[in-house]
């Protein structure tokens, strides 16, 4: 076991897979010589060569389109999009091609592309470095959507994503690259060093796609969330003294309905939280699913905590970010409801 932050864990996942499988190639803006603006691919080009770690032109549509072609021709591309906020020029390639290739060719063609991209706010990045567009991707059938909340999962899920023959969009909450974040920007930054999920095996392992995890066991209320907000939810459970069970969705699509439903059936109460905007957000799918699965066990209406329905405002980052206050208020709201 080694101590790793999320960046090191992601780098290690690349390293392990490039070493095991010569068909794994990496491409993206600044990923090669420089090692990525967040350093997630640092050292890979030196180790595996310029034919396997490719500095791409600034063209997200080109990166994803070319990755699809490479995948069709037997490679296993891992494409980095520098920020999730810049993935949209590649959206047509994802929706019209990557997601449907297998279906429309009756399984004769497919492309096992993994698209990694940093997402989320809390870094004073303004509206073009803070978005959480995962809900746009979960709405597209034929691609898997993943968002880890810690280094251990990041590495295991990324390896599983690279091995998956289905395309995966892999969101990395950049606020927790260097340490868990409980939603209070006033507190000094914490590193992954003291966190159990900062213990990461150096070699190969997977965290299977499609499995949620109980991040904190509890009896009174279930908080279903993912990414940075897993840590906010755990902190809010402590702050409110409510015995919350925090479920980390990890793979947003396909969804592990059983783990979520079992938890809500046990607690009878459900709060859903994400950083992304609320309206038509991924939380709406979660709420509908829980309502269907757990209707007779629910003791209170399902409630949501989410980003406001505005672009991410630079100056009002902490009024925008669904932090400890809003998470705690959400917990109380669900506990007080009859």
């Amino acid at each position: 076991m080694a101590q790793m932050n999320m960046i090191e864990a992601i780098r290690s996942a690349h390293d392990v897979m490039m070493d095991r499988d010569s068909s794994v190639v990496v491409l993206g803006e600044d990923v090669g010589y420089f090692g990525g603006v967040f350093r997630c691919t640092d050292g890979l080009q030196r180790k595996y060569g310029e034919h396997r770690v490719i500095d791409a032109p600034i063209s997200e549509g080109g990166i994803i389109g070319a990755a699809i072609g490479m995948g069709v021709n037997g490679l296993r591309p891992v494409a980095e999009i520098q920020f999730a906020d810049y993935i949209y020029p590649g959206f047509d390639q994802i929706v019209s091609e990557l997601a449907r290739l297998r279906y429309r060719s009756s399984g004769d063609f497919f492309s096992p592309v993994t698209i990694r991209t940093p997402c989320g706010g809390g870094i004073r990045g303004g509206q073009t470095h803070s978005q959480s567009p995962e809900g746009i991707f979960t709405h597209v059938t034929g691609i898997k959507t993943v968002m880890p909340s810690n280094p251990y999962d990041a590495k295991g899920l990324l390896i599983a994503a690279i091995e998956s023959d289905d395309p995966v969009v892999f969101f990395e909450p950049k606020r927790i690259y260097n340490g868990p974040f409980d939603g209070d920007p006033e507190k000094p930054a914490v590193s992954w060093g003291s966190h159990p999920k900062g213990e990461v095996p150096e070699g190969y392992y997977t965290v299977p796609l499609g499995q949620a995890e109980i991040a904190r066991a509890g009896e009174e209320l279930t908080i279903i969330t993912y990414g940075t907000l897993v840590h906010v939810a755990i902190a809010a459970a402590e702050a409110t003294g409510v015995d919350c069970e925090v479920v980390d969705v990890r793979t947003l699509s396909p969804l592990d309905v059983a783990t979520l439903a079992d938890s809500v059936k046990k607690t009878g109460r459900c709060l859903i939280a994400h950083e992304a905007t609320r309206f038509s957000g991924y939380g709406a799918e979660l709420a509908a699913t829980i309502q269907k699965e757990c209707f007779y066990q629910l003791e209170a209406p399902i409630s949501r905590v989410a980003g406001w329905d505005t672009p991410y405002p630079h100056a009002f980052e902490w009024q925008y970010f669904p932090g400890l206050k809003r998470m705690s208020a959400g917990i109380r709201r669900v506990m007080e409801a009859e």
Binding site: G125, G126, H129, P313, H314, A315, F316
Partner: peptide, 8 residues
Amino acid sequence: DMCQGRQL
């Protein structure tokens, strides 16, 4: 601020 705090 001309952008009312909304932009980087």
